[in-house]
Amino acid sequence: MKKLSPYILLLPCSLFLIITLGFGVIEGILQSLGFMPSLGMEEVTFKYYAELFKDGEFTKSLLFSLKTSLISSILSVIIGVFIAYILYKRKSRLNNLIIKLPMVIPHIVVVFIILSIFSQGGYISRIMNNLFMISDFNEFPLLINDQYGIGIVIAYLWKEIPFVAIITYDILNNINKDFIIAAKNLGANKGQIFSKILLPLSKKSIITSFLIIFAFSFGAFEVPYLLGPTMPKALPVKAFIEYSSSDLFNRPYAMAINTVLSFISLVIMVFYEISFRKTLK
């Protein structure tokens, strides 16, 4: 009975989530298959998925989302691990507090900060203009709402670097110090200790962090909506626009996009679960 008690306690919440989320998922899949009886659409079909993958805009949106998510996640891991190593070598409560501050700031606030700093009318362009480095604000490179998603990547880095740094720092602190002492006695330098001991022992947690931030940035809406280009749009933004269309007969197409988006997120979650189980071992 004691073994079952945690599951019994979780049962009411689990049932609520299964019923509400399950209903939404099933309804979304049915709509993506063109089954909407309220609109007189009662025939199940895969034509909306066929149209989806034939649509060049969808492909561009998918690649754009994958690109910005992948670039921001890779950079976040590299910089976050480096910062974690510095914090590990120079332990300080103040440093720990500073690295946690960006985590507290909501993404919507981060967007406005980035707009005020990196836009063509932002602080950097004004400073450069006052220093006669540029003669006009339009000469400042377009970093916001640009086709490469630079502004989106910057916004993700703001939140994701501290996330990776905090997780990696905690792992580094829990590594047995005897490994490091033994390596030093054998003549290993700082670089070798990091690359041969600290990094391999932190690898699984770093991979897990990468999967988490990649899944988040791939499915995020507000940042690419406010900082992204007109074309191509990030996949969540395209899904929202299609869903908000006044033409209700366009709803299956929008739900097909959401289903593809959810499927990719599910695949990432499976990889995360595998990585998490390996970490426990």
Rank of each mutant, 00 (worst) to 15 (best):
I180G: 07
L186S: 06
A188H: 08
L199R: 03
P232E: 04
V237K: 13
S245E: 07
A239L: 13
L198N: 01
A183S: 11
Y169G: 00
Y156F: 00
Y253P: 09
A182L: 15
D247N: 15
A239E: 06
D170N: 15
I167L: 08
Y156G: 00
F179K: 03
N176S: 05
E160M: 12
G219S: 07
G187F: 00
E222I: 10
D170A: 15
I212N: 00
Y253K: 00
I161C: 06
G228S: 04
L235D: 01
I167N: 03
V237D: 13
I213M: 05
F194T: 03
A239G: 12
Y243H: 14
K203W: 13
F221N: 06
A256D: 11
Y243A: 15
T208A: 15
F218N: 00
F221I: 02
T168Q: 00
K238D: 12
I180N: 11
F218S: 00
A256I: 09
S246I: 14
F216K: 08
A188P: 06
W158Y: 05
Y243Q: 11
I257S: 05
F218E: 03
L157P: 00
N173L: 02
G191P: 03
G187I: 04
A155M: 06
L172W: 00
K233S: 07
P236V: 04
I154R: 00
I154M: 06
Y253D: 01
A188T: 02
I212H: 11
I213A: 01
N176T: 07
A254R: 07
P252D: 01
I166G: 01
I152S: 02
R251W: 13
L248A: 11
K184N: 08
S246D: 13
L172A: 01
A234Q: 15
R251E: 05
I197M: 12
N185I: 03
F216M: 12
P232S: 13
L198A: 12
S195T: 13
K204W: 09
I171C: 09
I152G: 08
F216H: 04
I180E: 09
T168K: 04
R251N: 12
L172F: 02
Y243F: 15
N174C: 01
T230P: 08
L172D: 00
K233R: 14
I212L: 10
A188D: 03
I193H: 13
T230V: 15
E160G: 02
Y243I: 15
I257N: 10
F179L: 10
K238T: 13
I180D: 06
N173T: 09
P229H: 02
G228N: 03
E160V: 00
Y169K: 02
M255G: 12
L186V: 09
